[in-house]
């Protein structure tokens, strides 16, 4: 009727194949050896489930690592945990000789250096992200994002080396005198100035966290749907208004997330800070004075910590640092995930 039907050209076998098809059937002699071989292979269900469990075990090892870090830090800081309790973080005396430990100067140093770093880095990082996503010529974009990735990959100790020999002299001779002249009245920039100190630490931290913030900001900005930009442009907005209203406003949660992630990195950054902060367990109003952070005091003093209480105090600082960075990172990841959900997050 509708379709012209060819009769099948191959003759139908007289009977259906008898039941019991496990018998290997001959196409050619080799083929039959192949079939016999394959039939002889088992279901490999044992290998499969072993493999699956092994993979699962390795995935779970990530939990194990976190648990291990936590238990080791807690058990080895028992002495000071028991002796000082919560007052450990409120006391400002750091006196290893008399076994009197208060971690407040380091908490203060960590907070101030990190905040300083954020103040310096965030505007720059957002500027770079805007430039890279919205106005940079394509050819330059690849190069610049490569440069920012590279910046993120430079080891902390190399930053520290550079800071000691290039950044600190630069600050001491040109930047700090200017700051003392202009902002000396606030008391934040007061002599004596050695170059090394809180401000130098803040600057090197800013340089180090810039790439993280800017590349993550770039990511959340790219995740803003194109339609949002067009909607704003269609209203007759200029390019800058489009970036401000169409992109930055939509990406703001993610940008906050990336800033907090940068904060997390700044809080725990060790070597570069330890090399330029001046290692002094004191709280000074002047940012030019030497100070110490939680991470830097561990790096600088742990090797010479001779008695158990001293070591316990430093390990307790490590424990606090661990808990703080875990909370900060969790918070930041949740924010970044909320925005880039759907697109897999890159490893920062």
């Amino acid at each position: 009727m509708i379709l012209r039907i060819q009769e099948p050209r191959t003759p139908k076998p007289a009977d259906d194949e008898p039941i019991g098809g496990l018998v290997p059937v001959v196409v050619s002699p080799q083929a039959s050896t192949v079939r016999t071989f394959l039939v002889s292979r088992g279901s490999s269900s044992i290998a499969d489930s072993t493999f699956r469990w092994l993979m699962l075990l390795c995935a779970l090892s990530i939990f194990a690592i976190v648990a291990l870090i936590a238990t080791e830090l807690v058990t080895h800081s028992q002495i000071t945990l028991a002796k000082f309790g919560w007052k450990f973080f409120l006391g400002s005396a750091w006196d290893p000789v008399n076994a009197n430990f208060g971690a407040l100067p380091f908490v203060y140093g960590t907070l101030v250096s990190s905040i300083l770093a954020l103040i310096l880095a965030v505007p720059l990082a957002i500027g770079v992200a805007v430039f890279l996503t919205e106005m940079c010529p394509r050819a330059l974009r690849g190069f610049l994002s490569f440069m920012t990735e590279l910046l993120a990959a430079i080891p902390s100790v190399v930053y520290g080396l550079w800071a000691i020999f290039v950044l600190v002299p630069l600050l001491r001779e040109h930047v700090d005198p200017l700051l003392i002249r202009l902002l000396g009245w606030t008391g934040l920039f007061a002599p004596p100035d050695f170059g090394i100190g809180m401000f130098a630490a803040g600057v090197i931290l800013a340089i180090m966290i810039l790439p993280i913030i800017s590349s993550l900001t770039r990511e959340v900005m790219t995740a803003v749907p194109h339609s949002q930009r067009e909607a704003v442009l269609a209203l007759g907005a200029t390019r800058w208004e489009m970036i401000r209203m169409g992109v930055l406003r939509n990406a703001r949660i993610g940008i906050v997330g990336s800033i907090i992630l940068g904060l997390g990195r700044a809080l725990g950054e060790t070597m570069a800070v330890a090399m330029v902060i001046g290692s002094s367990p004191t709280i000074s109003k002047s940012l030019l004075a030497p100070a110490a952070t939680m991470a830097s005091v561990i790096a600088n003093e742990f090797a010479e910590a001779s008695d158990d209480t001293y070591r316990s105090a430093l390990i307790e600082i490590a424990l606090a640092l661990f808990l703080v960075t875990i909370v900060v990172n969790m918070f930041a990841r949740l924010l970044v995930w909320a925005v880039t959900r759907g697109t897999p997050a890159r490893v920062a």
Binding site: E72, E269, F302, N329
Partner: peptide
């Protein structure tokens, strides 16, 4: 999520934990 968070744990903390 834990892997991402672990990535952000300061390396000096890892060092102290393995020391212990």
């Amino acid at each position: 999520f834990t892997a991402d968070v672990l990535n952000g744990v300061p390396s000096i903390v890892m060092g102290i934990a393995v020391y212990a």
